[in-house]
Design a protein around this nucleic acid. Structure first.
Lengths: 108, 108
DNA sequence: TGTCATATATATAAATCGCTTATATAGTTG
DNA sequence: CAACTATATAAGCGATTTATATATATGACA
């Protein structure tokens, strides 16, 4: 079926506007989509490792005075490309859903 | 992380406008998203079984003169509810993606 | 008319991959 | 000192991939 996993996309989306550390990514997803939508820590840290191996994200230096435990990540160019492509794919899905009357906002 | 699998959503979407049989669902996804996006038969038929068990879809009588091999499915009310809810969730993701400049169409 | 390749159609098994759940560890804040 | 912040790993499970099996229908071509 191709395509990244939903968790991978959520992480790319969380990192699209600014660098964040793992726990901060969880919090961003919670704020955006509700507490129930947030991934478990187990899933998140495994996904971060996998995505780093796949060169979608990279570690970045922490700002001065930052919590020493934190590891900050940002998108690579490849990661941004993948995020954009997946966003387009999802936008097309939403268009199809609207066309099939699965969304309130009318038929167009 | 909650939520249905991407394949489950594709199937719900394919059945949203009309009843289809398994192979027809694959063809609908191919037309809508390109040949590369279509699921393997293995994934599809297993997903159909699972979704029937979960009462998201149900078998429906084939029309007269239809290929006897075909098994037609349609959405249940529950299936439609799930499809609508997931469509809303995806539409919100797309809004967030646009806000974070992952989609060409401008910042709004 | 026959027959051959391709498309249609459903199904199952083994292996792999990613998420859930559980657990561990430890520093920080109120 | 409890709750929150923060990262990490292991066992188990569920879903997809890949491969395989089976069989009918269709279209081309000789």
């Amino acid at each position: 079926m191709a395509g990244m996993t939903p968790l991978t996309y959520e992480i790319l989306l969380a990192l699209a506007d600014e660098s964040r550390h793992g726990y901060g990514i969880i919090k961003e997803i919670e704020e955006r989509s509700g507490a129930g939508a947030a991934p478990s820590t187990g899933a998140l840290y495994l996904a971060l490792q996998r995505m780093q191996t796949d060169a979608l994200i990279e570690e970045t230096a922490a700002g001065p005075g930052a919590d020493a435990r934190r590891k900050y990540y940002r998108l690579t160019l490849k990661g941004r490309d993948h995020a954009e492509a997946e966003s387009v794919r999802l936008a097309e899905l939403v268009v199809a859903a609207r066309r099939k009357n699965l969304l309130a906002g009318g038929a167009s």
